[in-house]
Amino acid sequence: MSKFEIRKRSKSEVTILDIYGELDAHTAPILEKELQQLIENKFVHIVVNGSGLEYISSAGLGVFMAYIEDIRLQNGDIKISSLKPKVFNVFDLLGFPTLYDIVETEDNAVARFK
C-alpha cells in the first residue's frame, strides 16, 4: 500500500508541510484533509516542502488545484519547494510552474511571503 506522511511545523507566520512518500489516488485524501484544516483555521500561508516526496500522480496534483483558489481568496498561497527532479517533472508536464511558485529551497519559499 502507498505510504505518505505529513509533518507540520511553523516558521513565523508560515506553515510548513514536510511531505514524505508517495502522493497518489490512495494517499491524496491525507493531504486534502490537512489543507482543509489549515484553511478552516485561517492558516493560509503554506509552504509544502517536497524534499521527501518520492512520487506524485495527477491525483496528488489535483489536491493542490482544488484548494489554491480558496487559499488565494484569503490572501494566502501555497508555495512548493525542494522537489526532486523526477517529481518536479510531473508538475512541469502539466504547466504548474506558471500558476504556482515552485522554488528550490524552503527558505526561498518562505521569503516569498514577506
Partner: peptide
Amino acid sequence: SMQDQLNQKKRSGYGILLIRKL
C-alpha cells in the same frame, strides 16, 4: 485549461493528458 480548472476548483482530467505526454 489549468486556469479554468483552478477557477472551478476542479481537479481531474489530467490523467489522460499525462498518459499522452508520457
